[in-house]
Write a protein that binds this DNA or RNA. Structure first.
Lengths: 157, 157
DNA sequence: GTTACTGCAAACGATTTGCAAGTGG
DNA sequence: CCACTTGCAAATCGTTTGCAGTAAC
């Protein structure tokens, strides 16, 4: 990630911690740093492994805590595609793309779309001040669609 | 729910079961029936209780199984707003509304919008066959926005 | 100093799984 | 009758929680 943007994000985190009178610990900043290295979704377990690999020891409990704080701060966004695992993403990344979720294999693909933001801003939301959005489109990925088609062909032989 | 619509849904379920060579058990139909009684989101535990109240005994395992089948059939839709509990909804209901989620108080409001479906259909999704979508807009509900404004006013006095 | 934060391990609880008994086709 | 379904209970595993030690302010 662009280091200028990363600094922006770090500064907004600092501002949030100050406003909420929360402590600025090295764990919190190290975790945010590592999160910025993901170019797409991540989950707690992967984040934990990456931090260990980077030789930074943090407990899972702290990760869960920090990720909650970052979510409250509006810096990351929570995605729950499967029952098993919560995924997160930098809100900055999430803003301009939508998520294509395969109903068969649960794979998630991100799709950038320049019009999306504009489209959604045309929606009227009375008595509600929108900040950001997430659009999930469920369906079949090319691979599963293919598989399904082959099965149908087989059956009709 | 309109009994005509309910019949439509039941018939589409039957068609699905036939096509997939799955069995048409009384449990499956009783569960679908009960699901139709919800006017909004529901979860497995509430569904279980309602069925027991209606004097229909089913195990949780069967509920989980059936709900998966119904999801595959495209009759219900899975929502995962909180970490704790998966929620479901009839797709028929979900199709034309979006979810306004307050970042302060976590309240969820459903908002019907006639344009939404059309807007989202204009999006191109290469190598992906869309089936349905969910749009979540995060922001501040009127109440929390108000509270925030009052605090700001107080601070600037 | 005070008290929020961290780390560890144990607890939790929704969902999943294994298997014997039941029943649709 | 075959094998898909159900019910029950046990297992699973991501997440949460309690508490003692540590460090931010």
């Amino acid at each position: 990630m662009d280091s200028k943007i990363q600094k922006e994000i770090r500064d907004s985190f600092t501002a949030y911690l100050t406003e909420k009178k929360l402590r600025k610990t090295k764990e919190r900043y190290a975790i945010l740093e590592e999160i910025c290295n993901f170019s797409e979704h991540f989950d707690i377990i992967t984040l934990h492994q990456r931090l260990l690999t980077a030789n930074f020891h943090v407990s899972k409990a702290t990760l869960y805590n920090t990720v909650d704080v970052l979510t409250d701060a509006g810096i990351i966004v929570r995605h729950q595609v499967t029952t098993q695992l919560v995924q997160y993403e930098l809100r900055r990344l999430a803003d301009s793309h939508l998520h294509l979720i395969c109903m068969k294999c649960s794979s998630v693909r991100e799709l950038k779309n320049a019009h999306l933001k504009g489209l959604i801003h045309t929606l009227k939301t009375p008595r509600f001040t929108p900040v950001f959005h997430s659009l999930y489109i469920y369906g079949l990925c090319a691979r599963c669609k293919n598989k399904q088609q082959k099965e149908l062909n087989k059956r009709n032989k």
